[in-house]
């Protein structure tokens, strides 16, 4: 394998990996505060892309993205308030079924609003054929946008959880909900906030990746499956684990095409998921004790 080809595979892998990681982080945030997997997470990504594409007709790109992220956050809050918050002591299974229902609802609404066609944002820098050379490999500048946005999101999140009062309250709520209530933290609000946050992160990812992958009413489903795989791989609830696992899975997928036919790419990721579930059910990076304590 030449060095160019190696770099080319590596960057392809990092691109997929960053996107998977960001979807997985969305899963983790909601998992930590509620203990449920929000299967509508992929739909937040799709909504971010679709809304920004629609807004682009009326405003510059940056404004469209910011507004799309804000609107998706409002939708996230709305979903939590309407479907989750009023449930008194709901079982985990019930909440999961609710999120599956919500994902179908959003998808059908998107089909009704935007139709079945593919749409995309324009490339942020250059056009569909622009590429920058890195060690002889050619990379679309949009890949750098995706990787950069993913990195910044992770940094901003870790700052938010460590250094801001709301972030700390969310961590308290994740670590021990009862104790958090006793300390006067409004855990209901924290759950709403976790939906807002993961909707926003998903929507941002949706905007960043739209020029590369296109956005279609049902593009969230496939992403949710990959993001879920990564979340399990990294250990549910573990943000750092999600990033590492996302990049790992992306790179493995990209390099897999050099040895096995492309058709087996998804087989590899599902096989990894199954192996992890058998051997290390708490994820690659977590010990059993750590998995018992939820933390960001």
């Amino acid at each position: 394998m030449t060095i160019e080809l190696f770099i080319q595979y590596l960057f392809a892998g990092i691109t997929y990996g960053s996107i998977y990681a960001i979807v997985a982080i969305g899963f983790n945030i909601i998992y930590n505060t509620t203990g449920i997997i929000n299967f509508a997470q992929g739909e937040f990504v799709m909504l971010g892309g679709m809304i920004s594409i629609s807004l682009l007709d009326f405003m510059p790109l940056a404004c469209a993205i910011i507004l799309a992220v804000a609107i998706t956050m409002v939708i996230g809050a709305f979903i939590e308030i309407v479907f989750i918050r009023w449930l008194a002591a709901p079982s985990v299974l019930r909440m999961i079924i609710i999120t599956i229902g919500i994902s179908i609802l959003i998808r059908e609404a998107a089909l009704y609003i935007w139709g079945e066609g593919v749409r995309s944002l324009p490339y942020f820098t250059g056009s569909a054929i622009t590429a920058v050379g890195i060690f002889g490999a050619r990379i679309s500048p949009q890949v750098l946008w995706v990787v950069g946005a993913c990195g910044l999101t992770v940094l901003a999140l870790s700052f938010f959880f460590k250094a801001t009062p709301v972030g700390r309250e969310m961590r308290a709520c994740a670590a021990n909900r009862k104790a958090a209530i006793l300390c006067g933290i409004n855990t209901g609000n924290m759950v709403t906030f976790s939906f807002v946050l993961s909707a926003g992160i998903g929507a941002l990812a949706g905007c960043m990746m739209s020029p590369i992958t296109y956005t279609q009413y049902d593009s969230g489903t496939a992403l949710a499956i990959k993001g879920f795989t990564v979340a399990i791989l990294g250990g549910l609830g573990n943000v750092g684990g999600a990033v590492a696992a996302g990049l790992l899975l992306g790179v493995v997928e990209a390099f897999s095409v050099s040895v096995v036919p492309l058709a087996f790419q998804d087989v590899i990721s599902i096989a990894i998921l199954l192996i992890i579930l058998f051997i290390r059910p708490n994820g690659l990076f977590a010990s059993k004790e750590a998995a018992g304590l939820r933390a960001f």
């Binding site: 030449t2 080809l5 392809a12 496939a222 997928e253 390099f255 095409v257 036919p261 492309l262 058709a263």
Partner: peptide
């Protein structure tokens, strides 16, 4: 001769392979 998934979102890796 390669087959990709109908929901494939990025094919740069396989393109790099056949380009080589």
């Amino acid at each position: 001769n390669e087959v990709y998934d109908k929901s494939a979102t990025d094919l740069s890796a396989i393109i790099a392979k056949i380009k080589a």
